[in-house]
Design a protein around this nucleic acid. Structure first.
Length: 552
RNA sequence: GCGCCCGUAGCUCAGUUGGAUAGAGUAUCAGAUUGCGGAUCUGGGGGUCGCAGGUUCGAAUCCUGCCGGGCGCACCA
């Protein structure tokens, strides 16, 4: 609808331009927005203010001239000049009601837009090392990454969800050693040293390890036992991560293993190539990548003096594969504690001959937990963290996702556990899901009373022009705009916020308008509005990866 | 010391590319409903948008400086 209005404004401007002979032809960039105050109308444009300086006219005078033309358009009920030179539009109510037909034509696709034009986008997220279970920080990244991927898909991009596993290197060796230590402890030995991974979960890993390999494994040669323990632990923990994510309704297209990059030799090959290109040089026995001249604080080591490559070396090879796979945008969702890597990774992209602007890093800020009136900061340093599994078990996957998605990922957030658990209107996820369930309930009621589900083509739109109805309809028709905003800002919370508003307007409508009543035509019209609302709630919640229940 | 994010109502937070009298929930106060799910709805009070400059017709939004909070600054990942 917004685009329709924009086109009408452009047409009017061109007409005015011809009439006055300014020859400016192009109205340029101007806004069409929903005014904050309802009394200003359905849409508002700043065109007159933008063009005023270019044409050396007073904004209000220009606005008046445009208004005279726009008033002839029967799309609008009123066109008015306001404030410093805004033009405010109010559409004829019946035009809004008729617009609902779009929802019934597009159904489960209503909300899709084509700004992506089929371009390939990768969203890489979570990518936690298989050294321990996911905690709620990972959970926030998982929710944001997954919802963002869906939003981009709805915006017309060809999206791939990818998880990169760091399944080799020093951390993995530490993991193997920790497993063996715990296994020996289970066998009755005293801990020879403090394990690198101290969490309780390591005891479970060790127990499973012993069950599979039996006690003989402990007397095997150290190197052999270590390798077996390492591989077992990594696989065991990774399995848990996959399960957690699946239960969190997060599904990846590709699980990319760092190990394969080493095994294929592409890490070494790229280092050699960059040495030749003098993007990598030797100093103090180590090999360094020139990231400094690309905006990083200093150059970075890719191969240590002891001959072992660093994480960065693998990351070069990994990002090479991303570039080779022809994505137009590479989105990475990282925890805020990794922000220092952004310039480094941009430098890597440049060194590979790619455009660093292709890499979009969304940093997701930390989560703290509020429980029993206390706030707990999640801290890896102090080893205090709640796992994603624990919080999912306590409040449910839907509520966890909703809470992670209702705030801007740029802000640190407080997760109120009691609120997420409460089954009342105070809890936003219940408020939204309840709106959907209420729609279903209305249909059940209609069915009992023998009221048929209407076909929108036979509904009289004039019957949907009450204040509460119009407000709801206007909001419903915004879904495509919201998808666009969320996609272009890479911020899913815009959609979550919108869902809440839709639910609020629907509850209001329901309270003040009898849906299934005596008047057959009116019942049909209102039932169709409920159907449209339910479709929007279902589509929106679907994008966010949250269930839309018929009963609660 | 350098860098990134944040600072908006008592509390938790929105505010799309700069727009009109800055919003929601919650808390608080006051109300509604003999009917489709009260898991709902209506209203009131509550603000120096951290502070100070600057750009602009117009700044919560952009720029600079300062203050406060969080997080990073390895030949770890």
């Amino acid at each position: 609808m917004k685009n329709t209005v924009r086109k009408e404004i452009e047409k009017a401007f061109i007409e005015l331009d011809n009439q006055e002979g300014w020859g400016s032809a192009n109205p340029g960039a101007f806004d069409v927005s929903h005014p904050r105050e309802e009394k200003f109308g359905d849409f508002s444009t700043n065109l007159a203010m933008i063009m005023a300086s270019r044409l050396k006219k007073k904004p209000r005078d220009l606005a008046e001239l445009l208004t005279a033309i726009l008033r002839k358009n029967d799309l609008f009920e009123t066109v008015e000049v306001a404030g410093p030179g805004f033009i405010n539009f109010r559409l004829r109510p019946v035009r809004w009601a008729r617009e609902l037909g779009r929802v019934f034509r597009e159904k489960e696709s209503f909300g899709r837009v084509e700004i992506g034009k089929g371009e390939k986008v990768m969203v890489e997220f979570v990518s936690a090392n298989p050294t321990g279970p996911l905690h709620i920080g990972h959970g926030r990244g998982a929710a944001v990454g997954d919802a963002l991927a869906s939003i981009l898909r709805w915006a017309g991009y060809d999206v791939v969800r990818e998880y990169y596993t760091n399944d080799v290197g020093l951390q993995m060796d530490n993991l193997g050693r920790s497993t063996l230590l715990r296994a020996r402890e289970l066998a009755g030995e005293i801990l020879a040293e403090e394990p690198a991974y101290k969490g309780e979960y390591m005891k479970d890993v060790a127990r499973a390890f012993m069950e599979k390999h039996g006690p003989d494994i402990l007397s095997a040669p150290e190197a052999e036992a270590l390798a077996i323990a390492r591989d077992f632990a990594a696989e065991n923990i990774m399995e848990g991560i996959r399960k957690d994510l699946a239960d969190f309704n997060v599904h990846f297209d590709i699980w990319y293993s760092e190990k394969t990059l080493h095994e294929s030799g592409s890490v070494e090959k790229l280092i050699d190539m960059m040495l030749e290109q003098e993007r990598i040089y030797e100093k103090d026995g180590a090999l360094w990548l020139k990231t400094d001249e690309q905006g990083d604080e200093k150059d970075r080591v890719v191969r240590r003096a002891n001959g072992v490559t660093t994480y960065l070396a693998a990351d070069i090879a990994y990002h090479k594969t991303k570039l080779d796979r022809n994505f137009s945008t590479l989105v990475n969702i990282w925890g805020a504690d990794h922000h220092g890597y952004v310039p480094r990774m941009k430098a890597v992209i440049s060194a590979l001959g790619g455009d660093p602007d292709k890499l979009v890093v969304r940093l997701v800020q930390l989560v703290s937990l509020k429980k029993g009136g206390q706030t707990y900061a999640m801290s890896t340093r102090e080893g205090v963290f709640t796992t994603l599994r624990e919080i999912m078990d306590e409040v449910g996957a839907d509520a966890v996702r909703y809470f992670f998605l209702m705030r801007s990922s740029d802000s640190q957030m407080e997760f109120d556990v009691e609120l997420a658990k409460s089954q009342s209107s105070e809890n936003p996820v219940f408020y939204v899901q309840y709106a959907h369930a209420r729609c279903s309930s209305i249909f059940r009621q209609a069915e009992e009373k023998g009221v048929a589900t209407p076909d929108f083509q036979h509904v009289n739109p004039e019957l949907l022009t009450g204040e509460g109805e119009l407000r709801l309809i206007r909001k419903l028709m915004e879904l495509p705009e919201i998808v666009e905003v969320a996609a272009s800002s890479f911020q899913p919370h815009h959609l979550t916020q919108y869902m809440y508003e839709v639910a609020g307007l629907f509850h209001h409508f329901y309270k003040h308008n009898r849906v299934v009543g005596e008047d057959e035509a009116l019942s049909a019209a209102r039932l169709s509005l409920v159907m449209a609302t339910q479709m929007i709630l279902k589509n929106g919640l679907g994008i966010l990866g949250i269930n839309a229940p018929d009963k609660m």
